[in-house]
Amino acid sequence: MELNFDDVTRYGALLIEGSIFTVVVCVAAGLVGLCLAILFAEGQRRAARALRILIRAYVEFIRNTPFIVQLFFIFFGLPSAGVKIDANTAAFLALTLNVSAYFTEIVRGALETTPKGQYEAGAALGLRPRQVFFHVVLRPALAKVWPALVSQFTLVFLGSAAMSQISAEDLTFAGQFIQSRTFRAFEVYIVVTLIYAGLALAIRSLLLLSGGRLFPWLRGAR
């Protein structure tokens, strides 16, 4: 047995580019996904019945099918319907839809357990319904489920490796490219795996830490 990492380190720049792409696309998908999730979660509580059922079906369908199939459906399916889409955009789109469904479940749970008195207290302070929702209901609700959102995001981040399969230029894609040039499959994937683990740890800690900034009243409570 002989491991040789020289070939891998020669392609270090590619791995860095791939890592940046993975992080950027995941964070962007996470942000857009969270906005969608808030919309869907609130929609599921208040919208017309037909729309509620539609959101429910969307969430269940995404959660009960593999991410890679969603990727293929979007990347191969949309062009056949006349919509031109490149691999990177398709990956971002699929990732956003995927994360939005998981986040919807989490946010909905948080909104559902918000006591009615909280809405009433907001109204009693003379706040308009929108202000009540954003400041009195949503923010504490997100604070409550922040750790769950962070865990889910970490899972989605690790799952994002599948986007290499539609040739989106992520970290795994970089790994596969280097492997095809050097035939050092094991060494390449060991390095890529370690980068993923490091990034996941960093993102997780950073997000948990930023929870304290976003929701300052939680500081010291935990």
Binding site: L158, A161, S164, A185, F186, Y196, A197, A200
Partner: peptide, 23 residues
Amino acid sequence: AAVQSIPLLMLIFLCFFGPAVVG
């Protein structure tokens, strides 16, 4: 902790390409 902090795809790759290293 190790398994939970790496992508499943990498675990699959390592199991697939790893044994080849020792022949």
